[in-house]
Design a protein around this nucleic acid. Structure first.
Length: 763
DNA sequence: CGTAATGAAATTTTT
DNA sequence: TTTCATTACG
């Protein structure tokens, strides 16, 4: 084979890429060039003349899909291969076949918190008392059922299970509520598609034929619903290629089933299996540590990881007195490496089991002036202000969406309180109408005070005004929403810092909308925007480019790699997490989680443990993680750090005379005041990477001279020579076509093309 | 109706 | 300790 596509591949990789027809299982260890294989295989299929539209590649994250897209683009430019996440693929299928499962094509996708609210409202409507079970437990039960392809009517509670009995009662009502609102939760996206394929053989057959080659990444993380979907699409044309690593399955708690990959050979008997065991990422020592650890798992496929990389440094294990010492130790190490010019901030990553552990580390990094970015749990699109504003758009797109209605009906406050809503809900329930419809008829609602009815009517009028804009670019709709609901004004009037931050976040959302508009010209893309918004997550926008230390949970680290990795808090109860200790399966998953963390490291790995840790305000003595005992002792360089408080010291220095700090010295660690740092490279860390990337840098560089339209923003007060003072209520269009709608005090609303208008900002 | 105060709960979270 | 959700007041 002298095809350039195969040039840079190893034999094993080549074997996988060259495989064309029939099922293929690629067992790919960490750092084994899996993405390379998948992308090259796609390119190869294209080269053989397969139309791009006949290839489907499914991933779990947008980031992975994006990565794949850009790499295929390099190998085979301009080919529209469908590469997306499972959920996005399903969303698209459902838009096409919505009516077959009882949805409108403009259905809403509920994220976790939306569906939580929907469940809460369902239970309220039922006047059902779930006893001591929490909403989350019930939600978990429903989610479990959905992941296992059990529809409401088919749900059979385990005999004697109280929770099961509750789920049995609630699940059908919850599902009915979603359908009534024409909404789906994340699990539904998969479940509905699986059901669609099962119940409609002709549709299934057509799609099976349409997607001639299907590839699934991270197959070890598929659940039964995903399995069923993939399976249904590869019956007549069984050209299914899956890649995965059983040892990296860390989402069992989300319904992923290791069975799918372990039994793949059973499900597809004539499967071709390729093992990618050579690692190109880590040093020999790191790899041996990972391999030794994971060998303790029983439920797996044996594999032999090897690398031709250097031996590398020993893996370090540091034991600190307290978490503050631990954090300080890590920060000091990083600082000295950077100051010595050996590394840059972006070379480092710090992983931990739970988000709550990040705080101490952040504090220390900040005090050393080390720039960092945290991939954090609270996502941009989950913030209240974002969800509020999105709520308006959602209701515009789907007037049947009761959850969206409830979210925005009194945000900002318009005097529509609990009792009013109670009556609206009762009315809507008896008339079997969406809440918005009920609101429209507020005059007919029994016992509704006139004042309340007027408030409701005003809201409906607002809604109707906004809905006239539904086909406009998203940025413009958003602008009108912000202005006419007085959401923005309410925040601006507030002087709390939180609210100022909210305004900034809304500004980011506007930017995201603008970028979306530029990306998708034409009319009526509201649903697509909303889909983007809810199927995107912050990890996707983790910025590999910026020069910062990365902080994240072990889960979030999957798929990434860093020259130097720290894994903090190697303690019983954290890793393995206490909630995982009951079942052996869960313990194995925790072990895999650590395996994933370890195998992210390219050159250096440092594990650490604190002897005492403050947890929920309690200082407790810790027990070393059992996993530490499952590492090869000869590969580990263990050291105990025993010095007193406040001493910032490089680790390679010998431990100093500890006499006067012995014993309780660490009880009250003293803190150096976080000192502002002199070096410009070490600017104070910005709080959070926002989910939305700003393009302003490029734009400013481009045409800074022409007092660009970018100086105008949402809500700004402007002056017009003729009409006087006005406020920008919406912006739209891009570049030279940038337009603003301005509400003037005397002259009403007018729209201008900014480049040609005499508008000037005031202030 | 809206805000302040109290109390219970607290992993991980591809979408 | 912190965060939320519900409850009690003004």
């Amino acid at each position: 084979m002298d095809d350039p596509l195969f040039d840079q591949l190893t034999d094993a990789q080549r074997e996988a890429v060259a495989h064309v027809d029939g099922p293929l299982l690629i067992l790919a260890g960490p750092g084994s060039g899996k993405t390379r294989v998948v992308t090259h295989r796609i390119a190869h299929l294209l080269q053989l003349g397969t139309p791009a539209t006949r290839i489907l590649a499914l991933t779990f994250t947008n980031k992975a899909a994006q990565e794949m897209k850009s790499r295929v683009e390099l190998l085979a430019p301009g080919k529209p291969v469908w590469m997306s996440t499972f959920h996005r693929f399903c969303a698209r299928m459902l838009r096409e076949y919505a009516s077959l499962v009882g949805l409108d094509p403009n259905f809403t996708i509920y994220d976790a918190s939306d569906s939580h609210n929907a469940l809460k409202h369902t239970i309220e409507d039922m006047e059902f008392d779930p006893g001591h079970f929490s909403l989350q437990q019930i939600a978990g039960g429903i989610s479990w059922a959905k992941n296992n392809l059990i529809r409401p009517a088919e749900y059979e509670p385990r005999p004697g299970s109280v929770l099961g009995a509750i789920v049995h009662r609630v699940y059908p009502k919850y599902e009915a509520k979603l359908l009534q609102s024409s909404a789906v939760d994340f699990d539904d996206l998969l479940l509905h598609v699986a059901a669609l394929l099962k119940d409609n053989p002709e549709v299934r057959g057509m799609l099976d034929a349409r997607y001639r080659y299907i590839m699934v990444d991270e197959y070890q993380d598929t659940n039964l619903a995903q399995y069923a979907i993939v399976r249904a699409l590869s019956i007549d044309v069984p050209n299914l290629a899956v890649t995965g690593d059983p040892d990296q399955s860390i989402y069992g708690w989300r319904g992923a089933s290791l069975r799918n990959i372990l039994e793949f050979e059973h499900d597809y008997p004539d499967v071709h299996v390729v093992r990618l065991e050579q690692n190109y990422r880590s040093t020999k020592r790191i790899l041996r540590v990972a391999d030794y650890l994971i060998a303790h798992n029983r439920r797996r496929k044996e594999k032999t990881l090897f690398t031709e990389n250097d031996e590398g440094q020993p893996v370090r294990l540091r034991i600190y007195p307290t978490q503050q010492h631990e954090a300080e130790g890590i920060a000091t190490r990083i600082a000295s490496e950077i100051l010595a010019g050996r590394r840059r901030p972006r070379d480092f990553a710090i992983f931990y089991r739970v988000n709550a552990l990040s705080r101490a580390i952040e504090t220390s990094l900040a005090s050393h002036g080390i720039p960092y970015q945290m991939v954090r749990g609270v996502e941009f699109f989950q913030r209240k202000e974002i969800k509020d504003v999105i709520g308006y758009l959602t209701l515009l797109a789907n007037p049947r969406d009761d959850e969206a209605f409830l979210r925005i009906i009194n945000t900002p406050v318009r005097g529509i309180g609990r009792s009013t809503l109670e009556r609206l809900r009762a009315y809507a329930a008896t008339k079997r109408k969406p809440l918005l419809e009920a609101a429209r008829e507020s005059g007919l609602v029994a016992d509704l005070p006139k004042k309340a009815a007027v408030s409701v009517a005003r809201f409906v009028a607002l809604y109707d005004r906004l809905s006239l804009l539904a086909a406009e670019p998203v940025e413009e709709i958003l602008g009108h929403v912000l202005a006419e609901s007085s959401y923005q004004e309410t925040l601006e009037r507030s002087d709390s810092e939180d609210d100022q931050e909210r305004l900034a976040n809304i500004e980011e959302l506007l930017t995201a909308a603008r970028e979306f508009d530029e990306r998708t010209p034409g009319e009526g893309h509201l649903e697509e925007f909303l889909e983007d918004v809810c199927l995107v997550n912050e990890t996707d926008t983790w910025d590999a480019v910026s020069d910062r230390v990365t902080l994240m949970t072990l889960h979030a680290s999957k798929g990434l790699e860093f020259p130097v990795v720290f894994i903090a808090a190697m303690e019983e109860g954290l890793i393995p997490h206490e909630r995982s200790r009951e079942k052996p399966d869960q313990l194995e998953e925790e072990r895999r989680l650590l395996f994933v963390g370890i195998t992210r490291a390219e050159e250096e790995l440092e594990l650490s443990q604190a002897s005492y840790r403050e947890f929920r305000g309690q200082r407790k003595m810790t027990v070393p993680s059992q996993f530490l005992m499952q590492l090869p002792p000869e590969e580990i360089e263990k050291s105990q750090a025993n010095w007193g408080p406040g001493v910032v010291r490089h680790y390679d220095e010998p431990v100093p005379d500890e006499s006067h700090h012995q014993g309780e010295a660490w009880e009250e660690p003293e803190w150096r005041e976080p000192s502002p740092v002199s070096a410009p490279a070490a600017a104070a860390p910005t709080a959070a990477p926002l989910a939305v990337r700003l393009t302003t840098a490029a734009e400013l560089a481009g045409d800074a001279a022409s007092a660009s339209p970018d100086i105008f923003h949402q809500g700004m007060v402007v002056r017009h020579p003729e009409y006087g003072l006005g406020k920008i209520i919406a912006l739209g269009g891009s570049q030279g076509q940038r337009k603003a709608t301005v509400a003037f005090a005397t002259a009403g609303q007018r729209t201008f093309v900014l480049n040609k208008s005499p508008l000037k900002p005031v202030k």
